[in-house]
Write a protein that binds this DNA or RNA. Sequence first.
DNA 1: TAATAATTGATAATCATTTTCTTTTGATAA
DNA 2: TTATCAAAAGAAAATGATTATCAATTATTA
Lengths: 145, 145
Amino acid sequence: MEALISDLKSRLKEKGYKLTTQRRIILDVILENQGLHLSPEEIYDKVKNKYPEIGLATVYRTLQLLEELEIVYKLNFNDGCNRYEINSNSNDHRHHHLICLNCGKVIEVEIDLLENLEEEIEKEGKFKIVDHNVKFFGYCEDCSK
Amino acid sequence: MEALISDLKSRLKEKGYKLTTQRRIILDVILENQGLHLSPEEIYDKVKNKYPEIGLATVYRTLQLLEELEIVYKLNFNDGCNRYEINSNSNDHRHHHLICLNCGKVIEVEIDLLENLEEEIEKEGKFKIVDHNVKFFGYCEDCSK
DNA sequence: TAATAATTGATAATCATTTTCTTTTGATAA
DNA sequence: TTATCAAAAGAAAATGATTATCAATTATTA
């Protein structure tokens, strides 16, 4: 946790940006809600508890910034807004998402297993893969009863 | 091509919907531009050439309908709009998308190879998969030169 | 301490998508 | 073929997420 804050600080400084209270709190909120894939609005609500003067625009700006710094990344579950997640890429901890078509719940799966597929694609020599995004749609335990 | 139109007709009838000129033309345009992943606005522009009285709302409504009938499905490449593609699911012709991080081009890949992964996920018995969505991000031939 | 640039909050603007409402149209039964 | 009636269309307004604008504030460095 603390590691990410000091990481943020150095990455910001590197690009001439500042570590402000607002930015720190926004990252805190995302860290405290890992796995929840919060939307900007949801982050805004939670940040307001700790820092009531915050503006919604600041949340949007900070999310863009965190994405640019690769501290966070954007998800789209087709529910009308973007959602954000800590990028645990650093420890090579990739995962996929299972999205329940009934209740909308999002579950993370800690397997990757895409090496074969990526290899197969790159074999042709026409595309260099740097990232992937895999979503499975179906029914969760509760909804398939 | 014709097959899809009569398929549309019967699926519509099944649910008490009508086959209108507008709906037929919208499907035509999507069919004529396979692989282009058109957005509602782009579809609207192309349909207007054949049927100038069309309204944008009709395009949106028809796309929702075609999606509901599983004739078409929605894609999101994070470029500010949804995009649509014919669902060739019928002939089990699944494919993935390669998205170029530089020029935004979208390339289709005709390999699936996700059986292992899906098996692995379903093995736990906590999720029943019915569909998936796989995107690879990287650089296309032109942009990696 | 002054100067400079970055950042913020509030508000207005944008843009894709949906809704509303009135008119028109397609499918069906007489 | 025509009358009927729900479904569908078009136009325009509304919505909702996101972005841009701008004046005021704050941090950093000379």
